[in-house]
């Protein structure tokens, strides 16, 4: 099945460095297939978040090729990349994932607000809210009880599930999670990953999951170490 679809991410000889600094990332080759679940591990400061920013089309590489869903992001203008991200990428942050002035369901449907494609997949506002509720419930939260309260009152674990629902709504092809479990305790971590897997599978999304915690790697079919891939890190260490 995955062979027929183009890879979600295909990068070749990608180099990136922050303005005025030497290359932070130098990646020879990385492919992520449709629906694949990839664990990316690396110590703090190794450039994990930077790589995710590249995949999300926030940053553009210095050199090399980066294609997401067959689309060369470097060829798109900034506005088009933002639009591309809205339509095809879901993002989960380490913590503080929720917009404090929006309700729980609104925080989830925010994922559709800037994306005509996701809205088209789901339908009108009522349909979006229905899907948001389904997702949040599937991720193990009592929507009806929690939606009435301000989201700032939710526990970190609950917030991360709402964030996952927002990333997943409208079934984007790529879900990126930047250390989403680092604020959770060990049992909550595993539970969160299991729930995330179930919904990623249902949506048919590929998942790139970043963490500095190697213990989670066992849960993933494929796991990579960024420093091992990164030729820039090797030269720096040398």
């Amino acid at each position: 099945m995955s062979e027929t679809k183009p890879p979600v991410v295909a990068l070749e000889a990608l180099r990136f460095g922050w303005p005025g600094q030497p290359d932070l990332l130098d990646l020879d080759d990385l492919r992520i297939a449709a629906g694949e679940r990839l664990f990316l591990e690396g110590p703090s400061g190794s450039g994990k978040s930077t790589l995710l920013n590249l995949l999300a089309g926030i940053l553009v590489p210095r050199a090399g090729r980066l294609r997401v869903l067959g689309q060369d992001l470097a060829n798109l203008r900034a506005g088009a990349r933002d639009r591309f991200r809205a339509d095809h990428v879901g993002f989960i942050f380490q913590q503080f994932n929720l917009v404090p002035y929006l309700g729980l369901v609104e925080n989830v449907t925010l994922g559709c607000r800037f994306s005509p494609a996701r809205r088209a997949r789901l339908g009108d506002a009522a349909a979006q809210a229905r899907e948001a509720r389904r997702l949040v419930a599937a991720l193990g939260l009592d929507v009806d009880a929690l939606d009435r309260r301000p989201v700032t009152g939710l526990s970190v674990g609950q917030q991360q599930r709402v964030a996952a629902a927002r990333a997943l709504i409208g079934a984007p092809e790529l879900v990126i999670a930047d250390e989403p479990t680092s604020a959770l305790d060990a049992t909550a971590r595993a539970a969160f990953v299991e729930l995330l897997f179930a919904e990623v599978e249902r949506a048919g999304s590929a998942l790139v999951f970043v963490s500095h915690d190697p213990a989670l790697a066992a849960l993933f079919p494929r796991s990579l170490s960024l420093p091992a891939l990164n030729r820039a890190a090797a030269t720096e260490a040398a």
Partner: peptide, 13 residues
């Protein structure tokens, strides 16, 4: 944070 979240769901600067 809020701005980063909005950016992540595709809001343009």
């Amino acid at each position: 944070r809020e701005m980063a979240i909005l950016r992540s769901v595709g809001a343009r600067p």
